[in-house]
Design a protein around this nucleic acid. Sequence first.
DNA 1: TATGAATGAGCCTTCATTCAT
DNA 2: TATGAATGAAGGCTCATTCAT
Lengths: 205, 205, 205, 205
Amino acid sequence: MKNRKGRKGEESRKRLLKVAANEFSIRGFHDTKVSTIVKRAGLTQPSFYLYFPSKQAIFEELITDFHSRVRHLTESLLLESGIKQTDVSNRVLSAVETVFQFLAADLDLTRIGFFLNPDAKQMKKDLAMVLKDNLEAEQRLGYFRSDLDMETVAECLIGIIEHLTDSHLLPGSKDPASLAAQVVNLLIYGMLPNQGALQKRGDIR
Amino acid sequence: MKNRKGRKGEESRKRLLKVAANEFSIRGFHDTKVSTIVKRAGLTQPSFYLYFPSKQAIFEELITDFHSRVRHLTESLLLESGIKQTDVSNRVLSAVETVFQFLAADLDLTRIGFFLNPDAKQMKKDLAMVLKDNLEAEQRLGYFRSDLDMETVAECLIGIIEHLTDSHLLPGSKDPASLAAQVVNLLIYGMLPNQGALQKRGDIR
Amino acid sequence: MKNRKGRKGEESRKRLLKVAANEFSIRGFHDTKVSTIVKRAGLTQPSFYLYFPSKQAIFEELITDFHSRVRHLTESLLLESGIKQTDVSNRVLSAVETVFQFLAADLDLTRIGFFLNPDAKQMKKDLAMVLKDNLEAEQRLGYFRSDLDMETVAECLIGIIEHLTDSHLLPGSKDPASLAAQVVNLLIYGMLPNQGALQKRGDIR
Amino acid sequence: MKNRKGRKGEESRKRLLKVAANEFSIRGFHDTKVSTIVKRAGLTQPSFYLYFPSKQAIFEELITDFHSRVRHLTESLLLESGIKQTDVSNRVLSAVETVFQFLAADLDLTRIGFFLNPDAKQMKKDLAMVLKDNLEAEQRLGYFRSDLDMETVAECLIGIIEHLTDSHLLPGSKDPASLAAQVVNLLIYGMLPNQGALQKRGDIR
DNA sequence: TATGAATGAGCCTTCATTCAT
DNA sequence: TATGAATGAAGGCTCATTCAT
């Protein structure tokens, strides 16, 4: 009832974030003008500064948003991988698909957090480390070749995800599920035509 | 009249390009100031406009430079792949290493052409197509699994190269040869511990 | 309708005046922000305009306050000087001390009315005139050197009071009584080591 | 011959300083707009920033100017006082007159350095200390009453100078010489009608 | 070939003030 | 009596670019 610090303000703030995300995503930081954000949000410039101390600040808030979502994602991936599963490739597939799904959920934010964020490098490195830990655990269980450097594998995966996100997810030309399937099929079985793999491939899709 | 042969002028021009490449690479387009470029090049602002019609123009010239180098690269890759080779994996390895070497040759230019260039997407797509053609040819010869969509494979490779360039080549933490070896080992043989591959892997490293 | 008797309102108004005086005194007119005043007074911006039509207005009200207090002061000084006193120097001393005491009573207001007020010049001139009249009266009675231009003397006194207020009263490093004593001792007897004065000086301190 | 860093720029810079001094002096810091300064100097806004990094900076340069002039003044006063002179009052008179003349030389700068400068207090304190040292030296020689606290005397003198500057020098209603004469006459001989002084007073004016 | 000097255009930000409740 | 939300108006500053020499 005493919903102080009102509803309307909260909505204006959200609208600003939404519009800003879109503008940044399309135009990048510098070519995004506060005046445009505000116009699209149906407000005037001073109102912007009612909710955010600066243009830089709203940009960083979006990045932080993305960051915390990424954290949740990695946590859920860890949980998932903790659960015993018989089929490794299905495990990996599901993880990769989850990531693509996550990245597809808010394209503007993904562009900002993944491609515009000047500190994206670090974040990707963190992500790679989580992946690496998972992969190494499974490697120790004999599910993966023991001579692979899982750090590099993780980084390759990140690179793949990054690029496919940019080239197919953001433009909307492919969906998370099929991207994941193809990536995992490639990484798990490799490019060589080896017989044993062919049967298992059926399991994935 | 438009005697473009003045020795001094030509040198000033080159200095500007060099410095600009470095500034753009470090700071990005917007945060690079013409005033800084000319200062570092030992010139004054009007001199800049003696050689380039605008800041945009020098940026684009650098991108075009990179572009034409990329074209040479792909041509040489095509040639290379035309030559018959017995070992596929070595063929791929050599190609990937060539690419990494190319990207390592001029880091500033690589950052600009590969990461700052707003049209990098298209260029990467072109590159992917060349790769794809190569791969499909070999696929038809039975060297690669027939169920793989080589376009996606090509894109994955691009993604990997892109990311490893950003995370290890530009910072100088790994060299082209070892990066190539690891990537190819992964892609060719996959992650599963399959027996047949183990012997061949020895060929690469 | 315009029932100005609301207790709470009256208190809010007073709080605003108090806080504003302090802020103006510390920061000056321009660097004092309405937003700060209301925050410190525990109110919101629109409330401010319930009590004062503008920032300028509250500033002027403070100045007017100071003004009217000054008027009371000068009146009391006139009364005092009307009373016959045998010792001139004690008369002067008492007057000067009264002034210092007055200025010390509300330091914020003194800073505003005396140093920040753009019309302080006029007010000081008025004050000087009152002083001058007093001094000239006593001069005619032979208490002071007849060749002195009492207008200048009055202005010197004002200048002294002004400066000592700024340098010692506002920071609290000296008290009104001792400041007054020193000033009057100087002005009455001058700087030269002349015999006759030495005895009388004892009267002052 | 090689008068690099040209004449024209130097002139623009000086014009800006001149105009700025006048604007600040009339309007104070906040109400002085860069746009006005620049307009009056026959330039456009960006040119301003060719010569000064900010509005604050030009203000501070003016203050620093004033400061260094004050330093020269005090040095010359020290020199002067070193020279043996028979008549103390003439010594003091000459010093005070020099100060008034100095303050009258550039009224805009005086207003800025003396009244607008937020650090004027410190500067006045420094000035007072120089005066005090001088006065105490003469006091030890028996020229002044030994019971006077010369620090206070110095401060009174500063206060007088300050006020008369504000009330008569800046408006141009009195000249340095006559102001000095009256001030010194008052301070040296005091207000009481004492015989001995009357002859000497003739020396001053 | 080069530069000292200058500017057009525009963006971010601030602040006193008001509207609607 | 009070406030959440919003704004009109303006100012400082930056930067790519040009003029005149």
